[in-house]
Design a protein around this nucleic acid. Structure first.
Length: 493
RNA sequence: GCGGGUGUAACUCAGUUGGUAGAGUCACAGCCUUCCAAGCUGUUGGUCGCGAGUUCGAGUCUCGUCGCCCGCUCCA
């Protein structure tokens, strides 16, 4: 068994491009940082991953599906806390390369230095504005100048140039870069006029689409708590840095489920979903030893979470999160109640109790999962005289389920092959290949992870049987032509 | 964002002190082939990431820029 090692990711990226799994976005224009396109095989794989998730999550009584709009009312993101938490201005010290949040830096200054800032700010004011400012008490001046420093880059530039801002790390003054607002939400405008009144955001998580529809879904489906709402969709984050192929991208797809439970039962459900979600990856063929559960320490929890655990996969570059399970408490529903004025309460008839449900979130990255499946499936197998590259996808995820290969193009083998191909195509994604030696054709299929190859040979002409070759073992068995479809159906969910 | 590395055909790479680009693989068209790549013939495909500069002349030197990889930072 070959183990992923240095260079493995490069090989996978190369194979992914060569065979049509993943292309770099806008490649002919030099690429767009952190964006990737799914090619013919990639989109099959992605659809299979999503469909497997969808079946696992929603083909049960207590989870409903949803597909909310990517653009939502801007107030949604105020309620969710994203507007507030996404606008930190960051600066770097050019001298020692330290990075700071500007607002935190200002707060960390001692009084003497804050007064210097206030004084430097005064110098920027003229006429009545200056008079007004000077008339204010010292404390208020510090506050006003601090706000201006943090929020107005022109003010920052001048004050920084005046050598009143010192780097806490190296003590240099005037060495800071201009503040950059690392607003992780992409912004755009609704309608033809671009101004502040019509700003909307591309959602940074799909979860909020579920929360704002909580009452709609609940009432439309006659569900009772506990129940869940599942959704698959694109989300966008303007990451500072993208990295590691599909792992950190600015546009990605999430597979999320929010499970609404009665307060007090949340810990129990959290445990349960943690186990169920881990099992899903294993059921999809991912190697157990490459998966682990990694709890978040309490001091690193997101603003909405009471508890969190990541499902991590061991990529060639190290362990990385492919799914997060969070106990979001009643934070989101309560906030939406507050911001929208609409009730998010649930009435439990059995106990005659009213409560806002707690939420257990399972949030998987479709793109990250796909990458993990790619890495997990990749293997270089040493044979006697060669190395075989094989993608050992679980049959349910494999882009092509089978390939039909006439051994030679004569005596009517190709006609039988084409007929079988057309027939199988009604039920499965299948590939037909009649060019090159049979060995070469097997290798092509191995490289894209096709689990079964069906070969038509001269015996087929005699007794209507074909051979089916297994991708992983390379062993063959002979079955009647008419049973091929059933054979595949049995093995491919 | 910082530092380091890197960018030549679809893929992997070569290209000598600057003189208008090569190989293998793949693909395609034939031939040959009765079960695990690399048999034969032929063909397509690159203004050497992009843009300036130096030079009589730049893939080869300089600067800028973009992408990718590694490390740091960041990851609400």
């Amino acid at each position: 068994m070959a183990k992923p090692q240095q260079g493995t990711l490069e090989k996978i990226v190369s194979l992914a491009k060569r065979r049509g799994f993943i292309f770099q976005s806008s490649e002919i224009y030099g690429g767009l940082n952190g964006c990737w396109d799914y090619g013919p095989l990639g989109v099959e794989l992605l659809n299979n991953v999503k469909s497997s998730w969808w079946r696992f999550m929603t083909y049960r009584d207590n989870i409903e599906g949803l597909d909310a709009s990517i653009l939502m009312h801007p107030r949604v993101w105020e309620a969710s806390g994203h507007v507030e938490n996404f606008t930190d201005p960051m600066i770097d010290c050019k001298q020692c390369k330290s990075r700071y949040r500007l607002d935190v830096l200002f707060e960390s200054f001692n009084e003497k230095r804050q007064k210097k800032v206030a004084k430097a700010y005064a110098e920027l004011l003229e006429g009545s504005a200056r008079e007004e400012y000077d008339a204010k008490p010292r404390e208020e001046q510090i506050e006003i100048s601090g706000d201006a420093l943090v929020n107005d880059s022109a003010v920052f530039e001048k004050i920084n140039a005046a050598d009143v801002l010192a780097c806490p790390s190296c003590g240099s003054t005037g060495t800071f870069t201009l503040p950059r607002k690392f607003n992780l939400m992409f912004k755009t405008h609704v309608g033809p006029v671009e101004d502040a009144s019509n700003v909307v955001f591309l959602r940074p998580e799909t979860a909020q689409g579920i929360f704002v529809n909580f009452q709609n879904v609940f009432q439309a489906t006659r569900q009772k708590v506990p129940f869940g709402i599942a959704q698959i969709g694109k989300a966008f984050r303007n990451e500072i840095n993208t990295k590691n192929f599909l792992f950190r991208t600015r546009e990605f797809e999430q597979m999320e489920m929010q499970f609404f439970v009665k307060p007090g039962t949340d810990d129990e459900w959290f445990e349960r979903w943690r186990e169920d979600r881990l099992q899903w990856f294993i059921d999809c063929g991912m190697k157990k030893e490459k998966l682990r559960l990694e709890p978040h320490p309490e001091d690193k929890l997101a603003h909405y979470a009471k508890a969190a655990v990541d499902i991590e996969y061991e990529f060639p570059f190290g362990w990385g999160e492919i799914e997060g399970i969070h106990n979001r408490t009643d934070f989101d529903l309560k906030r939406h109640e507050e911001y929208s004025g609409k009730s998010m309460e649930y009435y439990e008839t059995e106990t005659e109790e009213k409560f806002v449900p707690y939420v257990i979130e399972t949030s998987a990255g479709a793109s990250r999962s796909l990458m993990a499946f790619l890495v997990d499936a990749y293997e270089e197998e040493e044979l006697e005289k060669e190395t075989r590259t094989v993608m050992r996808f679980h049959p349910s995820l494999a882009p092509f389920k089978a390939a039909v290969l006439p051994l030679v193009n004569r005596d009517g083998m190709d006609e039988i092959g084409e007929k079988l191909h057309k027939d199988l195509q009604k039920s499965f994604k299948v590939f037909y290949d009649d060019s090159g030696s049979i060995g070469r054709r097997y290798r092509r299929q191995d490289e894209i992870g096709t689990p079964y190859c069906i070969t038509i040979d001269s015996d087929t002409l005699e007794d209507q049987t074909v051979t089916i070759r297994n991708r992983d073992s390379m062993e063959q068995e002979r079955i009647p032509l008419e049973k091929v479809k059933a054979y595949l159906a049995e093995r491919i969910v």
